[in-house]
C-alpha cells in the first residue's frame, strides 16, 4: 500500500468538503473493495475520509410507502431486515448471492454501488487497462472474456459492473440520494448512476468529486412477483457470469455491461403480452459480442426467460 493519511468524519458536510477539495482523497466506508485495491496499488489515495460512522446506517419507511436505506448500512443487515425480506425479496436474494458472510458484514450499501469492476485485466497490473491507466489500451479485447460486456461496450473497455445488489435495485426502480460539495442534495436513479465506458472507462459514475451517497430510496414494491437468479463458476462466493432480477414488470441484468442493465426491451415486450422467452429474446436482439462471448448471449437469454417465469409464478 502507498502511504496515506486517515481521518474519521464526524460531520457529513465536512467530509464531503474534505474529499471535494483534495484530488487524492477518497471516502472509506466498509473498505472491502477499496483496501483490497490499495494493497494491489490499483488505488493509491493519499488521504482517506472514513464515513463509516456517520449517521447513515439505518433504515426508515418513506411517506410514499417505500424504504430509505442508509448509505452506510451493511449489506448483511440490509438483506436481513424484516421489511426488506417481506416486501423486497428480490433485494435480499440479490445481496445474499454476492460475496461471503464476512464481506457482507462489512460492505456498505453505498460502497456496493461504487465497487470497481472485477475484470481480470483491471486487476493484472502488468497488463494495459484503460480503466486503470487511461490511454494504455484494453487487454480484455484479446483475451478470454466470459466476464465481459455484451451490452454498451466500447473499443476502450468491455469491463462489467458485477454488483448483485445494484441489479435488484435497478429492477426495483430505486434512487440514490447524495450530498453534493456545494451543500445540496441530489436524487439520481440507480439505473442512471453508472455510465457506459465510451472513450473514458475510468469515469464510472455521474457523481462529482466528493459527492457522497447518503441513502438509497426504494419506491413501494411493484405489483407482481419478484425473482433473482445468478450463474457463476462456483456454487458460492464467486462473481457472476450473468445475473437477472425481476420485480413486477421490470427486468434488470447484471455482469453484462459497464452498469446494471435495465432490460427495457424485455419490459416493453412483457407489457405488450409477450411470453418470458419472447421478452428475453427481444432484449438479447440488442446484445453484441465477438465470437468469444456468443455463449454469454445464449446464457443470459435463457436465464432471463427462466427468471421472468419464476417471478410470474411467485405472484
Amino acid at each position: 500500500m502507498r502511504p496515506f493519511t486517515y481521518e474519521r468524519a464526524t460531520d457529513a458536510q465536512a467530509a464531503v468538503k474534505a474529499v471535494a477539495e483534495n484530488p487524492g482523497a477518497r471516502f472509506l466506508a466498509g473498505g472491502t473493495n477499496l483496501l483490497d485495491l490499495m494493497k494491489l496499488e490499483i488505488e493509491a489515495p493519499t488521504h482517506l475520509v472514513d464515513v463509516g460512522r456517520l449517521p447513515f446506517a439505518g433504515i426508515e419507511e418513506t411517506d410514499e410507502g417505500g424504504l430509505r436505506i442508509g448509505g452506510a448500512m451493511t449489506n448483511a443487515r440490509l438483506a436481513a431486515h424484516p421489511k426488506v425480506r417481506e416486501r423486497y425479496p428480490v433485494l435480499t436474494r440479490a445481496i445474499l448471492a454476492g460475496a461471503s458472510g464476512q464481506l457482507r458484514n462489512k460492505a456498505t450499501t453505498a460502497g456496493n454501488l461504487l465497487q470497481r469492476t472485477r475484470c481480470d485485466y483491471f486487476y493484472d497490473t502488468t497488463k494495459p487497462c484503460n480503466k486503470r491507466q487511461p490511454g494504455s489500451g484494453c487487454s480484455a479485447l484479446g483475451g478470454p472474456t466470459g466476464y465481459g460486456a455484451i451490452f454498451g461496450a466500447s473499443e476502450a473497455c468491455i469491463a462489467t459492473h458485477t454488483s448483485d445488489m445494484a441489479v435488484a435495485m435497478t429492477a426495483l426502480d430505486a434512487s440514490v440520494e447524495t450530498m453534493t460539495p456545494d451543500g445540496g442534495v441530489r436524487t439520481i436513479k440507480v439505473e442512471a448512476l453508472h455510465l457506459l465506458p465510451e472513450a473514458t472507462p475510468q469515469v464510472e459514475t455521474q457523481l462529482a468529486a466528493g459527492e457522497l451517497i447518503t441513502a438509497v430510496v426504494l419506491p413501494p414494491p411493484p405489483l407482481g412477483g419478484q425473482a433473482y437468479a445468478k450463474v457463476r463458476d462456483r456454487a458460492s462466493y464467486a462473481h457472476g457470469l450473468a445475473m437477472v432480477a425481476v420485480a413486477g414488470g421490470r427486468v434488470a441484468f447484471g455482469a453484462v455491461a459497464h452498469k446494471p442493465w435495465r432490460a427495457a426491451q424485455a419490459e416493453a415486450a412483457l407489457a405488450a403480452g409477450a411470453s418470458p422467452a419472447e421478452a428475453a429474446a427481444a432484449e438479447m436482439a440488442g446484445a453484441d459480442a465477438d465470437d468469444r462471448r456468443t455463449h454469454k448471449i445464449a446464457l443470459v437469454r435463457r436465464l432471463a426467460a427462466a427468471t421472468i417465469e419464476d417471478a410470474g409464478s411467485a405472484r
Binding site: 474519521r8 473498505g31 472491502t32 483490497d36 472514513d50 463509516g52 448483511a76 464481506l103 458484514n105 462489512k106
Partner: peptide, 15 residues
C-alpha cells in the same frame, strides 16, 4: 460480535 475479514480492515477504522 460480528465476523469480518481482519485483513480487509485497517486498525484505525476500529477505534
Amino acid at each position: 460480535g460480528v465476523r469480518i475479514n481482519s485483513c480487509l480492515s485497517i486498525l484505525a477504522m476500529h477505534d
